Simulated assay, not measured.
Amino acid sequence: MLERLETIRMARAMTAHAAERTKIIAGNVANADTPGFRARDLEPFARAYRGGADALRATRAGHVTSGAEGFSARITEDEGERAPNGNYVSLEEEMVKTAEAKRAHELSIAVYRSSLSMLRTAIGRKG
């Protein structure tokens, strides 16, 4: 039943996007000293979610998809400044991205909780 509600689907997709972005950021940080490594990121959630104007579909193996219906995102390479060892990872930028991903995850949880609260109210339960 809950899977049919758009807000629940969106919250699930947003959670999946934040989790996948966190994994990619962790990979960037892990490769911060790897010569020639290019930092990666996910396209913004608004573009990746099916309601966005530029909605994406997983049409090839290079796309990242989640179990959440209506969500797929493409991994992009960041165009940053090149370090002396030839890699493109800025730890400061990765820290900012981590904070953004955390904020997106917290927002998805808030949307989910709010949706459940509205459902409880609609069926006459408190809590």
Rank of each mutant, 00 (worst) to 15 (best):
M1D: 10
L2P: 10
R4V: 12
R4N: 07
E6F: 05
E6Q: 07
E6Y: 14
T7H: 06
T7F: 01
I8D: 00
R9S: 05
M10P: 00
A11M: 02
A11Q: 00
R12W: 01
R12M: 10
M14P: 00
T15G: 13
T15S: 14
A16D: 13
A16L: 03
H17I: 06
R21A: 10
R21V: 07
R21F: 09
T22K: 08
T22Q: 11
T22C: 01
T22Y: 13
I24K: 03
G27K: 09
G27W: 09
G27L: 02
V29K: 02
V29G: 04
N31G: 13
A32S: 15
T34G: 06
P35G: 11
P35Y: 09
E43R: 12
E43D: 09
E43K: 10
F45C: 00
F45E: 07
A46G: 05
A46P: 07
A48Y: 02
Y49I: 04
Y49K: 01
G51D: 12
D54K: 12
L56T: 08
R57L: 12
A58D: 08
T59H: 10
R60K: 14
A61N: 13
A61P: 13
A61R: 15
A61H: 14
A61E: 14
G62Q: 15
H63D: 15
S66K: 12
G67K: 13
G67M: 02
G67L: 03
A68Y: 04
G70N: 03
S72H: 12
S72W: 06
R74G: 08
E77H: 07
E77K: 07
E77N: 02
E77F: 04
E77C: 02
D78A: 15
E79L: 15
E79C: 05
G80H: 02
G80R: 13
G80D: 13
G80P: 05
G80C: 09
R82C: 02
A83Q: 13
A83M: 14
G86M: 11
N87V: 10
Y88G: 07
V89M: 10
S90P: 09
S90I: 10
S90L: 08
E92M: 06
E93L: 14
E94N: 10
E94A: 09
M95W: 11
V96N: 09
T98L: 14
T98W: 06
A99C: 06
E100H: 06
A101I: 13
A101Q: 07
A101G: 02
R103W: 01
R103V: 08
R103C: 03
A104W: 01
A104C: 03
H105T: 05
E106W: 05
E106F: 11
L107D: 01
L107T: 01
S108A: 15
S108I: 01
I109H: 00
Y112W: 08
Y112I: 01
R113H: 00
R113C: 08
R113M: 04
L116F: 11
L116N: 06
S117W: 00
S117C: 01
M118I: 04
L119G: 01
R120E: 03
R120D: 05
R120F: 07
T121D: 00
T121L: 01
I123A: 00
I123M: 14
I123K: 13
I123D: 00
G124M: 06
K126W: 05
K126V: 10
G127W: 00
